[in-house]
Simulated assay, not measured.
Amino acid sequence: MRVLVTGSAGFIGFHVARRLLTEGHEVIGIDGMTPYYDVALKRRRHALLRAYPRFVAHEIMLEDRAALARVVEGARISVIIHLAAQAGVRYGAHRPDTYIDSNVVGTSNLIDLARGMALDHFVLASTSSVYGPATDLPFIETERCDYPLSLYAATKKATEGLAHSFSHLSGTPVTALRFFTVYGTWGRPDMALFLFVDAILRGHAIDVYGNGQMERDFTYIDDVVESVLRVLPCIPVRGDKATGCSPVAPYRVVNVGNGQPVPLMDFVHAIETCLGRTARTNFMPMQPGDMQRTWADASLLEHLTGFRPKTSLRVGVARFVAWYRDYYARHDA
């Protein structure tokens, strides 16, 4: 396949692109290298991908429709995996414009240009955050998602709506994947695992929000990548209710999560055990936009692909810590 991966220097995009390349596919990567977090980390991810002869990278913003058109028009792309986004729940209080620009305008531009392509499949990243304050657990894809708690969730729900209308009008098969708290090697520095490991190793206290009472369905990056690749040949068919498809479009939503909510303090203890150090904790109140609990029903994913995420938190945290120590031993030297 020739696959367009947006956000190819991002956490999930890098891993997905690398897996595609190792399997012999061609990958066109797009990334805006935004400074939301360490751009050097993004560039090092891209540097690893550039070692593959079938990888081509373009440093552009999806909001720049003209630049995007120059990349995709005539490129004979068979699959789009749209992973680029302004991430993070709390950042929306400081820079709401970046969420609208990247998540809504950028996605709209990509979809508009995709209308002229004969795509086999359009896959886009959504998030467990769209479930908002829902109390029916575990979260299932048919749950109503009408009450987003953060701007991030609202914009990702908007991209689902844009993608559904695109699928209906163009007939293009679309799958929206709702990721649940992805973590692992080459992870984002703004996420809890990275922040906690970094602070504990430096002897700093960690901020534990929600007074430590929150729960998250942590999903290891390798399981996420496996899920994405296994979904690619699972083409949605309009009206196929048995596989979760829309009644009016070849479109479906699929949860990607471990299906095992973990109390936040158990997460902290797993990190402490791996590091052999005890964390100093600052218990903080729940932050605006945060969800109390996430828990994926991954039955549809397993039904479609025969796979469901299974990496234990202990194993996943250990792999991240090993990567972190190696990465910073080399790049801080």
Rank of each mutant, 00 (worst) to 15 (best):
G7Q: 08
A9T: 12
I12D: 00
L20S: 01
V27T: 09
I30C: 00
Y37G: 05
V39Y: 04
V39M: 02
H46G: 02
R50S: 14
Y52W: 09
R54V: 11
F55H: 12
H58M: 11
E63N: 09
A66V: 12
A67S: 15
A69Q: 14
V71G: 01
V72R: 00
V72G: 01
E73L: 13
V79E: 01
A87Y: 11
P96S: 12
D97S: 14
T98L: 10
T107L: 03
N109I: 12
L113T: 12
A114K: 03
D120T: 15
V123I: 15
V130I: 15
G132W: 07
T135K: 11
T135A: 12
Y152G: 07
T155Y: 01
E160P: 10
A163C: 15
H168E: 11
G171E: 07
T172C: 11
P173Q: 00
F179E: 02
G187Q: 09
P189L: 08
P189G: 06
M191F: 13
A192D: 10
L193N: 11
L195S: 07
F196Y: 15
E215S: 15
D217T: 13
T219K: 06
D223L: 09
V225G: 09
V225Q: 04
E226C: 05
S227P: 04
V228M: 00
C234V: 09
P236R: 08
D240R: 10
G244V: 12
C245K: 12
A249V: 12
P250I: 03
P250V: 08
N258L: 15
P263R: 13
D266S: 15
D266N: 15
F267W: 08
V268L: 00
V268S: 00
N282M: 10
F283A: 04
P285V: 03
P288Y: 07
P288H: 08
M291Y: 03
T294W: 04
D297C: 15
L300D: 05
E302K: 15
R308L: 05
L313N: 05
V315P: 02
R319S: 08
F320P: 02
A322S: 13
Y327M: 07
A333L: 13
